[in-house]
Design a protein around this nucleic acid. Structure first.
Length: 507
RNA sequence: GGUCCGUUCGUCUAACGGUUAGGACGCCAGGUUUUCAUCCUGGUAAUAGGGGUUCGAUUCCCCUACGGACUACCA
């Protein structure tokens, strides 16, 4: 059986958005599942759209996601180079091959001439097509004499090389997801294969490179489906039909509301990241948020993404990357586009956060404390982590849910004061404080008993004490159980905070 | 406009001719927690419309509607 080789082939025109990450993920899962190879090829044949830093961004993003390559622009491999601009010389000979076998031709029409033709067609509510029907009336080597063509080439006239689409043929693409897709050749354009700047277009470069790199399956976005027949045709023109990869065109990721392809704008508008990592546009300086910086765990991010367009056919939906590899199959990728749901992304992250063990949580929280220059003992950090981890959806929530363990309150929630802080409160807390001062056993269970006994013995209401005690401890109406907090804070800190609250709030 | 692709709860989706159309997110209600979350239990909610084919259509075919992608010397 042929070795499975797939590629992810982005162009470095900006940050990779989550649709691109998903395409990379599916390629990766497919490769691993079949013990094949996964490679990263950079498609930078359009020099005008090059964005500095984009290539590095793509590599770092996928690394963060845990998607690993076997070959690629950043690690090399047997089919190097993996950057198309570094393969520039290669493409010309392949364009010549098609020229020589009559399946491509030189065209000398200027962009301005073509633009005029398009405008003209448009005014008659038609679409201009450079194809089987019109190419005979244009400026190309199909109509010009050999000498004229030669003269034009010699004179340094700008030219492009176009594919010669056959006139009456049904071209069939077999797609692993969509089945048989066919299109009439007359409707296809004589697409440019080789540009006047000496670079190939995507169509030429991707076919040549996929062939040379022995790609077995092309798994890419649905936006490529309309040009897939052209690619099939090119394999035939090159005589590579026997080695043509299989195609799978993935459905699109749609915006959460309304319809249409998910875009950067949607993230800004609806307040969720569209990119794996934060991106700063080198030109405008505009910053787009990323999943990493927003505090998502890569495992959760990937799990969420994997299920957007694919499902295992079982009711399992929490998958480690290894489980995804085991379960993945192209056949179970859906046909229709998926709307991205930021709420579900959060659910996944919360699920993964609470699945972390205390030690792992303490590392995450420890990093936050380090940034804030707060030092605590590892034991205390671990205990706090354990008690708050279920309360955090995103990593920064770890701090939101625990800061009061590290920093004593300096202000107290006005609403809670209004509601619970009564004239007798200071005396009641003072008395409880004295009892706690004489308590040696600060385990949660014992504190619980001590506090409740105090309440019962004095005929007080639970709410009366618990709410004010909580207020004294953390400054508001939040946090884990009161007894648990007292136990963690320890005797000194607890007594200090009660004293401080009484002193500040008085009666 | 043309070509191609698509259409099951609000969302992600299962059911590859026979199910009370299943699960998850969200939402709602109850329980736990006398804070708030978590968690647990329950509930809400869908086959776009119309024709066929068939004993029987979510499932197969056709039409309509709607949506999307593509339509550059961009990828």
């Amino acid at each position: 059986m042929k070795e499975i080789r797939v590629r992810f082939a982005p162009s470095p025109t900006g940050p990779l958005h989550i649709g691109g990450v998903r395409t990379a993920l599916y390629n990766y899962l497919f490769a691993r599942k079949h013990h094949g190879k996964f490679l990263l090829r950079i498609e930078d044949t359009d020099q005008t759209r090059f964005v500095p830093g984009a290539e590095e961004y793509i590599i770092e993003s996928l690394k963060w996601c845990g998607i690993q390559f076997d070959e690629g622009v950043h690690i090399g491999g047997p089919y190097a180079p993996y950057r198309q601009s570094d393969r520039k010389e290669l493409y010309h000979q392949y364009a010549l091959q098609l020229l020589n076998n009559g399946t491509a031709y030189y065209a000398f029409d200027t962009p301005e001439e073509l633009e005029a033709l398009r405008k003209d067609s448009e005014s008659r509510k038609e679409t201009f097509q450079y194809g089987p029907l019109t190419r005979k009336g244009l400026k190309n080597s199909l109509v010009l004499s050999g000498e004229d063509v030669e003269a034009l080439l010699q004179s340094g006239e700008h030219y492009v090389i176009r594919v010669k689409i056959p006139e009456n043929e049904t071209i069939v693409v077999q797609d692993l997801i969509r089945g048989r897709v066919s299109v009439e050749s007359m409707l296809l354009d004589d697409k440019v294969l080789y540009k006047s700047d000496g670079m190939p277009t995507y169509h030429l470069a991707n076919v040549v490179d996929d062939y040379l790199m022995k790609i077995s399956h092309v798994i890419r976005g649905e936006e490529w489906l309309p040009s897939a027949p052209l690619h099939v045709l090119l394999y035939r023109y090159f005589g590579w039909e026997a080695d043509m990869p299989e195609f799978a065109h993935l459905p699109l990721l749609l915006k959460p509301d309304g319809n249409g392809k998910l875009s950067k704008r949607d993230g800004d508008r609806l307040g969720f990241p569209v990119f794996p990592l934060r991106w700063t546009d080198p030109k405008s300086g505009e910053v787009s948020s990323g999943y990493r910086e927003s505090g998502y765990l890569p495992e959760a991010f990937i799990n969420m993404l994997a299920l957007l367009g694919w499902n295992p056919g079982t009711e399992q939906e929490v998958f480690s990357i290894e489980e995804l590899i085991q379960a993945f199959s192209i056949e179970r990728v859906g046909k229709s586009g998926s709307k991205f749901d930021p709420e579900k992304a959060k659910w996944f992250n919360h699920h993964y956060m609470s699945g972390l063990d205390d030690r792992e949580v303490s590392i995450l929280l420890g990093n936050i404390l380090k940034e804030r220059e707060i030092e605590v003992s590892p034991d205390f950090l671990l205990s706090v982590s354990a008690i708050i981890k279920d309360r955090a959806v995103l990593i920064p929530d770890l701090w939101e849910q625990s800061h009061y363990f590290f920093v004593a309150p300096v202000s107290w929630d006005e609403k809670v004061i209004q509601k619970f802080w009564k004239p007798e409160t200071p005396a009641l807390l003072q008395k409880l404080s004295e009892i706690l001062a004489n308590t040696e056993d600060f385990t949660v269970e014992n504190i619980d008993t001590v506090v409740k006994t105090y309440i019962n013995d004095n005929g007080l209401g639970m709410g009366q004490i618990m709410n004010t005690l909580r207020l004294a401890l953390v400054g508001g109406s939040f946090g884990p159980g009161v007894s648990a907090m007292i136990s963690l804070l320890g005797k000194n800190e607890t007594l200090n905070r009660i004293d401080k609250a009484i002193a500040n709030l008085g009666s």
